[in-house]
């Protein structure tokens, strides 16, 4: 019994210690931002590997999700004779929820795991330590550009996801199922609000971007420098950042749309 209690205590302490390290790292990453802004090339390289390489999966999944929303929404709405509000349903679902959340989950799987693996391997092969010995701060040189790239890429990817999804819904609803084209767009524009819906969706995606990138970078930087440690850290990144995204989404949704 006492052993169990001690184990629980030790685990709790470990969790707090890790949280503390994560916050300290976050602080140093933020401190490094000015020096990265002075060297946009570093950022460009990371925007490529974090953002551009995630583009394909985002576009394809966005289109499919939009098509499914079009199909399901049509089948549901036509029973109430309101198939003309299909556009509203597709757009609101995407802009408020699916866009930011699904993008963040895909982003965690695609870019987050890659970030953790890359940083973890750089640590395991002493590249980070080597930089330190060359008097180059690895946080500024390696971590901050990656963080900024994730921070910038996520909202753009989420916007692309939503836009492509709306097209997908249009393709199925208007193109295949015969919803009136004018009604699709007009009702959508009538009901979707720039601030309440689009803007809040962008805020969500920014928050998710910070959370996922931060978790991915911390797990990589904190990984046990062996191949086993790196692979475990990569798994943790996907699990933790997915949970963080879903949890944060609930909180943000409650704050943004709760008292509407």
């Amino acid at each position: 019994m006492l052993d169990r209690l001690q184990q629980l205590g030790a685990t709790t302490l470990q969790v707090f210690e890790r949280l503390g390290r994560a916050h300290i790292l976050f602080y140093y990453i933020l401190v490094g931002i000015p020096s990265v802004i002075l060297r946009p090339r570093l950022l460009a390289a990371q925007l490529f590997s974090v953002g551009v390489l995630s583009l394909l999966i985002i576009v394809v999944s966005g289109f499919f999700v939009g098509m499914v929303l079009g199909l399901q929404g049509y089948n549901l709405l036509k029973d109430y004779g309101t198939a003309s509000s299909l556009g509203i349903m597709v757009a609101l679902t995407l802009v408020r929820e699916m866009g930011p959340v699904v993008t963040a989950l895909l982003f965690a799987g695609r870019a987050g795991s890659a970030l953790t693996a890359e940083i973890g391997l750089m640590k395991a092969t002493e590249q980070l330590s080597g930089m330190e010995m060359m008097a180059v701060d690895p946080i500024k040189r390696v971590l901050t550009p990656r963080f900024l790239a994730g921070f910038i890429s996520m909202p753009l990817l989420a916007a692309i996801f939503s836009a492509v999804g709306v097209m997908g819904g249009y393709f199925v609803g208007v193109g295949l199922l015969g919803v009136d084209e004018g009604a699709y767009w007009a009702n959508m524009q009538y009901r979707v609000d720039l601030y309440d819906d689009v803007f809040n969706g962008v805020i969500k995606s920014v928050v998710f971007g910070i959370a996922v990138t931060w978790i991915a970078i911390f797990e990589g930087y904190d990984a046990t420098p062996t191949s086993e440690g790196v692979s475990r850290a990569t798994t943790r990144t996907v699990v933790h950042s997915s949970l963080a995204v879903l949890g944060l989404n609930f909180i943000l949704t409650a704050l943004m749309f709760g008292d509407n």
Binding site: L121, Q127, E132
Partner: peptide, 29 residues
Amino acid sequence: RKRMGLLFQSGALLTDLDVYENVAFPLRE
């Protein structure tokens, strides 16, 4: 540290840069 060189057992080369850029790295930084 700029006046010290440390050669790691593994070499610790930056794997995403080629040989030329690895050697140029401290100069560029």
